[in-house]
C-alpha cells in the first residue's frame, strides 16, 4: 500500500481543476492506497462551505462526500486559512498546522500538486 498526497493550491472558481483534483483523489484510492488531500494557499477556499451554485458553478459536493466516506484525510493549512480570514470548513476537513501538513508530504510515496 502506498501513501499518496494531493495538494490543492489554487482558487476553486472559474475552473474545474480543483473538483477534478478531488475526483482524481477518489480514483487513487481504488488500488487500496492511502490518499490524503491538503488544501493550502488559495486552495483552502475549496474546503469552505461556499455556495458557487449561486453563480451557476457546480460545487464539488459529491467529491467531498465520497472522500469522507472512503476515510481519506482532508487537511487545510491553518496559516493559509488565517491569512484569508476563513473560519468555517466543510465537515471532515481538519485545520492543521504546517508541521501536520509536512508530515503526510514527507511520509508519502507520491505527492501530486494539482
Amino acid at each position: 500500500m502506498k501513501k499518496i498526497t494531493v495538494v490543492v493550491r489554487n482558487l476553486p472558481l472559474n475552473t474545474r481543476r480543483n473538483a477534478e483534483a478531488l475526483r482524481m483523489s477518489v480514483g487513487l484510492t481504488l488500488r487500496e492506497d492511502k490518499v490524503t488531500v491538503i488544501f493550502m494557499d488559495d486552495g483552502v477556499y475549496t474546503a469552505t462551505p461556499a455556495r458557487p451554485e449561486i453563480i451557476g458553478f457546480q460545487p464539488p459536493k459529491k467529491e467531498f462526500e465520497v472522500l469522507s466516506m472512503l476515510k481519506c484525510s482532508l487537511l487545510a493549512d491553518v496559516l493559509s486559512l488565517g491569512k484569508r480570514g476563513i473560519t468555517t470548513l466543510l465537515p471532515d476537513v481538519k485545520a492543521v498546522n504546517r508541521e501536520d501538513i509536512v508530515k503526510p508530504i514527507t511520509e508519502s510515496d507520491i505527492v501530486i500538486p494539482f
Binding site: V26, G27, T29, L30, K62, V66
Partner: peptide, 11 residues
C-alpha cells in the same frame, strides 16, 4: 460517472 461507478460497484 467515473470513478464513482467503480467505487460504488466495488463497495
Amino acid at each position: 460517472v467515473c470513478p464513482y461507478t467503480f467505487v460504488k460497484t466495488k463497495l
